[in-house]
């Protein structure tokens, strides 16, 4: 039992959990409104969206690459989702399906081009970021789609006490991604490729296939976030996804992911999102300039990578 406890304490996310609990208690103490049903609803709402964004990036960090186009894919799918319903009058399930298929195609493109060309995913996704975003702007001419079906709006606004209905989607995603990386062959293969691509290849893993699947998965998660954003905003904003980039890296890195690949933590990433959400919320509740979020977010990334490095070195020193 004590062994279990120690293992728990050594896990990537244990320190984060403590931080979250302490910060939560502190906030509740400073500002009782923090624990109000409505505030919890607001918190969970932003958590719902951001955790999907973070997972979308985390999947790619796991293979040791990065995906700058997460936001652009989310945005493109968001306006497609809203646009096809408004302009073509597509039924909701079909529009959702279309959004997911579009995302899968975007991810497929990222993955195939990266793998076949051997060019770094950074450059490829920088290019596709512009392409996807460019198509988005080109189609919408930067104007939102307003006529969202009532059912979608209702889904975006519905809640049970402090819990938004929407939370179901990210909850499923979290469980799914956790199972993928901890209990499924594909997930283990993704991690193996990220840790040592050559070794993975020699172990008979089809590296190309794994890389492409990871990109598709990333795009689908981003698309889910994009469509949830439409439901939440109650309109198809072309700017959806514009401000996802920093957050998408911040949460996995705070959660202990190694950017070189091969190691990510789903629980850590979720806690990373919680921390970001709390900071955001605290600044609003305490009436501080929202741009401090920007500042703190950056500082948090730096602190997290420093901490990860330090832990790594200490582990080496112990071994």
């Amino acid at each position: 039992m004590t062994d279990r406890l120690r293992a728990l304490a050594l896990a990537d996310w244990f320190g984060l959990l403590v931080v979250v609990l302490v910060a939560g208690a502190l906030l509740a103490f400073l500002q009782p409104a923090f624990l109000s049903t409505y505030n919890i609803y607001v918190l969970l709402l932003s958590f719902s969206l951001w955790v999907l964004v973070a997972l979308a990036q985390m999947v790619i960090i796991a293979i040791g690459q990065m995906n700058l186009s997460v936001g652009a894919i989310g945005g493109l799918v968001a306006i497609t989702f809203a646009g096809t319903m408004e302009v073509w009058g597509l039924p909701i399930p079909l529009a959702v399906l279309l959004g997911l298929v579009l995302a899968a195609l975007c991810g497929l493109f990222n993955g195939v081009v990266t793998h076949v060309s051997g060019i770094s995913a950074f450059i490829i996704t920088l290019a596709t970021l512009s392409i996807f975003k460019g198509i988005n702007i080109g189609i919408t001419e930067a104007q939102p789609f307003y006529a969202i079906p009532d059912a979608v709006k209702a889904f975006g606004a519905a809640r049970l006490g402090g819990v938004p209905y929407m939370l179901v989607v990210p909850a499923l995603a979290i469980v799914g991604v956790w199972l993928l990386f901890n209990r499924m062959v594909l997930g283990r293969q993704i991690l193996a490729v990220g840790a040592n691509r050559h070794a993975a290849e020699l172990s008979g893993i089809r590296v190309g296939r794994v890389v492409v699947i990871a990109h598709v998965l990333s795009a689908v998660l981003a698309a889910t976030a994009g469509m949830l954003a439409v439901a939440r905003l109650q309109l198809g904003q072309p700017t959806i996804g514009d401000d996802w980039l920093i957050l998408s890296f911040a949460a996995p890195v705070i959660g202990g992911a190694i950017l070189a690949g091969g190691h990510v933590s789903v629980i850590g990433t979720c806690l990373g999102v919680v921390i970001v959400t709390l900071i955001n919320n605290a600044l609003v509740l305490l009436g501080i300039d929202p741009f401090f979020v920007q500042l703190l977010l950056g500082a948090l990334i730096l602190a997290a990578v420093m901490l990860n490095r330090w832990r790594e070195r200490r582990r080496e020193a112990l071994a």
Binding site: A195, H198, A199, A200, S203, G204, G262
Partner: peptide
Amino acid sequence: NLIPRMSVAENIMLENL
């Protein structure tokens, strides 16, 4: 050609988990 963070057993069985 090993995956450093994975266990001894998982490395051994990686071809065929």
